[in-house]
């Protein structure tokens, strides 16, 4: 871990402006992924800006009947929030399927979105990786790829995004609120927040330098039956091989998103529309254009079956 200076920020705008002035600066909140990566020198900030004091830790009702979740709301608190449990069950379930109790107590809403991939080649600094060093090459391609992406991949990167929460946020049509160093705020639809790897897998989100997430907003509840089905080898404390977030309505309509299959939560509008036609049609549309390896091709079958399981679970 490289040496760094440590400071506590007071307001979001000031934090953003401080970070923008120093390209080696990083925000730290829960720290559960950042410190992990700093120990391996995958992240090497020379200035840490502690944003925990920014009072972004409330969950409030919005004017249009939704919820505004402060960036610093801990995963445990978000999952346990009565309104979330009642109206956004898929989110509560996704959070509870992730990590461990200890990690959820620290990890924040914004930090969860900003998690970096768990690709083992990304984690080993002896291995070339386009995320760590743009242009270095991808070691995963041709290597151990059982957990890697099957959708939206590129020649440069086949990593997945590891978050469960983000998959639920995607199916809930959340928006990410930010403040830029110049004080300008904006709202980024979750669909546009995470990027596909393309030729720039190191650019993982739509955030600009210094831009700070202040909240994630959920539209007003859409009702329906919620389910989050996470498939993994180990029964707990493991990243998803495939996960399914779904909201189903009595009339057969609904929404579905997949985790563990791409560089971002995977949702296809046409697949949502096909829900009344059944699992086969939905999965064909969701998985269209998939590119697999011999080790991760099972994810296509698994996704289809997990989709069926999640829908059964939602209806139960």
């Amino acid at each position: 871990m490289k040496a760094f200076t440590y400071e506590r920020a007071r307001t979001p705008a000031e934090a953003a402006s401080a970070a923008a002035k120093d390209p080696t600066a990083r925000f730290i909140a829960g720290g559960t992924n950042l410190l992990d990566l700093m120990k391996l020198e995958i992240e090497t900030p020379r200035r840490l800006i502690d944003v925990n004091g920014l009072r972004l830790d409330k969950i409030e009702a919005t004017k249009d009947g939704g919820l505004r979740i402060g960036a610093l709301v801990r995963n445990t608190d978000l999952a346990a929030d009565k309104r979330v449990r009642k109206d956004y069950g898929v989110l509560s379930r996704a959070l509870l399927a992730g990590a461990s109790g200890q990690l959820r107590n620290k990890a924040t809403t914004a930090g969860n979105l900003l998690q970096r991939t768990r690709c083992p080649y990304f984690y080993d600094t002896n291995m070339p990786c386009n995320k760590r060093t743009p242009g270095a090459g991808c070691s995963a391609i041709g290597g151990f790829t059982r957990s890697h992406a099957v959708l939206g991949t590129s020649e440069a990167c086949i990593a997945t995004h590891p978050s469960d929460m983000a998959v639920a946020m995607r199916v809930l049509d959340a928006s990410v609120e930010t403040v830029k160093p110049d004080g300008v705020t904006r709202s980024i639809p979750i669909a546009d927040f995470h990027r596909l790897p393309g030729n720039t897998p190191h650019v993982e989100t739509a955030l600009t330098p210094g831009e700070l997430i202040t909240a994630v907003t959920l539209p007003k509840p859409v009702g329906g039956m919620h389910a989050y089905h996470k498939v993994r080898d180990r029964a707990s404390y493991a990243f998803a091989l495939v996960s399914v977030a779904t909201i189903l309505h009595k009339d057969g309509s609904g929404r579905v998103a997949l985790g563990g299959v791409a560089h971002k939560p995977w949702r296809v509008e046409a697949a949502d529309s096909a829900l009344p036609q059944g699992i086969k049609s939905v999965s064909e549309l969701l998985l269209a254009g998939a590119k697999t390896t011999s080790q991760n091709a099972f994810k296509l079958t698994l996704a289809e079956r997990a989709l069926g399981a999640a829908m059964a679970q939602a209806r139960s």
Binding site: K2, A3, F4, T5, Y6, E7, R8, A9, R10, T11, E14, A15, A18, R46, I49, G53
Partner: peptide
Amino acid sequence: AIAGAPATASAATPDAPH
């Protein structure tokens, strides 16, 4: 604006601990 933790030593080189 930014409340720095009280520092008792400052960095002379980039590798020096804070």
